[in-house]
Simulated scan of single mutants.
Amino acid sequence: MKITILNENTVYRQGLFAEHGLSVLIEENDRRFLMDTGQSDVFLKNAETLGVDLTKLDGIILSHGHYDHCGGMEYLDGSGGMPPVYIQKSAFEKKYSGMEEDKRFIGIPDSHADWMAHVRYTKDLEEIAPGFWLIGKIPYRTDFEKRPAGFWIRDKKDGGLCWRADEMEDEQILAVSTKKGLCLFMGCSHRGVVNCILRAEEALPDIPVYSVFAGMHLGRAGEKQITGTIESLQKMNIPVLMPVHCTGKRAAGMMAAAFGDSCILPETGQVLEF
């Protein structure tokens, strides 16, 4: 397996750009999938600098409907040779973040009409290519991972507008089967990275988890959630952990200390091969 980080919150080498977002090219068994596109054309600029060809893809996977994972779609040419775009239907709901009256739009930009013809709505468990599964419907199982506060969906109701809490039902996991086991990829793990792993193990019980590449949404998490996450991951004994994006510096540092060489902290421009 080859993983090329086209965008992550941090960058480690000259000539590349980084932004709050995520975009990664995943290659295995002659299949090439792009997961997420960040919030702008940064992933395209970095791909060009790195000499990475994004014209020959088997598909684009959008982990959930937030701007920092889907915003770059508007910079791709949706008129011709775009590959299938795999996304949960609920990702197109009007998503906002904030508290009380201070809410800002964080959903998929309205320009998505340009690439809608290529969309393939995904199921709760779907094999999109041999050995490549998309997994949705992630339940809450742990006592320390709760729905993150401050995320909303704006609905039309009875001729007016109303707000409801965003349950992140659009979030999906990419699971890739390799000779060493399952390699899991998650955009933000809003429902909790441990809950996501448990869901993947439930969906594909015959293949052990080898690696987890994930935004773990621990940047603003409290002590209970961070320590609960680390303790649960230690019990799972996963050989390779790669916290990225919204994991947060504090949580990522604690994981690096807890897991040593088993924990990799990827940055924009890195190429990882297993």
Results as ranks from 00 to 15, higher is better:
Leu265His: 11
Ala113Pro: 01
Gln39Tyr: 09
Ser79Ala: 15
Gly38Trp: 01
Leu182Lys: 11
Arg220Trp: 09
Cys188Met: 10
Ile264Thr: 06
Ser63Phe: 07
Trp133Leu: 09
Pro205Asp: 10
Asp36Trp: 03
Pro109His: 09
Ala251Trp: 04
His69Val: 04
Thr178Ala: 10
Asp170Gln: 09
Tyr75Cys: 06
Ile108Trp: 00
Asp36Met: 11
His112Val: 05
Ala203Tyr: 03
Leu76Gly: 04
Phe132Gln: 04
Ile138Met: 05
Asn7Phe: 04
Ile5Arg: 01
Leu62Tyr: 02
Phe17Cys: 09
Ala18Leu: 08
His112Phe: 15
Asn29Asp: 15
Tyr67Gly: 04
Met1Cys: 12
Leu6Glu: 03
Gly21Arg: 00
Leu184Cys: 07
Ile5Gly: 01
Pro243Asn: 05
Val244Ile: 15
Phe33Leu: 13
Arg32His: 14
Lys56Thr: 11
Gln270Lys: 13
Glu74Gly: 08
Asp124Thr: 12
His69Ile: 03
Lys2Ser: 10
Gly192Arg: 03
Lys180Met: 09
Leu218Cys: 05
Pro266Gln: 07
Gly59Asn: 07
Tyr67Asp: 11
Arg31Phe: 14
Leu233Gly: 01
Met73Val: 00
Phe17Ile: 13
His69Phe: 13
Ser79Trp: 06
Asn195Val: 01
Cys183Tyr: 03
Phe274Ile: 04
Gly131Val: 04
Arg120Cys: 09
Ala257His: 12
His112Asp: 08
Arg141Met: 09
His20Thr: 08
Met216Lys: 01
Trp133Arg: 10
Glu74Gln: 13
Leu241Thr: 01
Asn237Asp: 14
Arg154Asp: 00
Met99Thr: 10
Leu44Arg: 09
Asp36Glu: 13
Leu184Ser: 06
Lys156Phe: 10
Glu267Ile: 01
Leu6Tyr: 06
Phe213Arg: 01
Lys94Met: 08
Pro109Asn: 13
Ile26Pro: 01
Cys162Ile: 15
Glu169Ala: 14
Gly107Cys: 07
Thr142Leu: 02
Ile173Asn: 01
Val209Gln: 00
Glu145Trp: 03
Glu223Ile: 14
Glu101Met: 11
Gly72Glu: 00
Ile238Arg: 06
Lys156Met: 15
Glu145Cys: 08
Gly131Tyr: 05
Gly59Ser: 10
Pro109Glu: 08
Ile197Lys: 00
Leu54Phe: 11
Met236His: 01
Ala221Val: 02
Leu25Ile: 05
Lys94Phe: 13
Ile230Phe: 11
Cys196Ser: 15
Val194Pro: 00
Asp53Lys: 10
Val52Asp: 06
Met116Pro: 02
Met216Leu: 07
Gly78Met: 13
Glu100Asp: 15
Gln172Glu: 06
Ser90Cys: 10
His118Met: 03
Tyr210Phe: 15
Pro84His: 11
Lys103Tyr: 04
Ala149Pro: 03
Gly72Cys: 10
Glu145Lys: 06
Asp110Lys: 12
Gly51Thr: 09
Met168Trp: 06
Glu8Asn: 15
Tyr121Thr: 09
